[in-house]
């Protein structure tokens, strides 16, 4: 990674230390969404937040190397399709759309594998929200509109490097 882009070296070192823990916390929020407060949406936003942190600290090239925008858009669509597929499977195996068709035995209460399709739906939502919010951030922070002298507006990429 280039040393010129992004913020100072202190921020870079701290980010390198912390980013894995933040990602892990986001995954925890997603996976344990049916047992503790949380769920797919906040967990997905936390996962997107790690990439936003990387973007702020290292400039936009480092996170885009790990998760480029094509892959992010594919993950977004995959999450949406999995979520819809779970709902449709409820129609196929159960009796109505979006039915919780897996077995819910009382012995599985308060365990990780419980609550039927809810954890899987949480995972799908987390995937979808994480990828799409990261993409929204990238789109908003990489492009910008500049006014040309003759009054027209034009879309360009923002200049990289540090702001004055």
């Amino acid at each position: 990674m280039s040393e010129k882009e992004g913020l100072s070296v202190i921020v870079k070192v701290v980010t390198r230390w912390i980013v894995g823990f933040v990602l892990l916390f986001g995954l925890y929020i997603v996976i344990f969404g049916h047992l503790t407060p949380g769920g797919g949406f906040p967990g997905g936003v936390i996962i997107a937040g790690t990439f936003v942190l990387l973007t702020l600290a290292f400039g936009k090239d480092t996170p885009l190397r790990k998760l480029n925008s094509t892959l992010a858009s594919e993950l977004d669509s995959t999450g949406a399709i999995i979520f819809l597929g779970i709902a449709l499977l409820g129609l196929y195996f159960g009796s109505f759309f979006a039915e919780n068709f897996l077995t819910k035995l009382p012995s599985s209460y308060f365990k990780l594998f419980s609550a039927g399709v809810i954890p899987w739906a949480n995972l799908a939502i987390g995937l979808k929200v994480g990828a799409s919010i990261f993409m929204v951030f990238i789109i908003l922070s990489v492009t910008r509109v500049v006014g040309l002298p003759n009054g027209e507006k034009k879309m360009t990429r923002k200049p990289t490097g540090r702001r004055k």
Partner: peptide
């Protein structure tokens, strides 16, 4: 629903 978190059970089961 089998989910210990009532909010999630509403969001992803009753009101999916």
């Amino acid at each position: 629903t089998g989910a210990a978190n009532v909010t999630t059970s509403i969001l992803l089961d009753f009101r999916m």
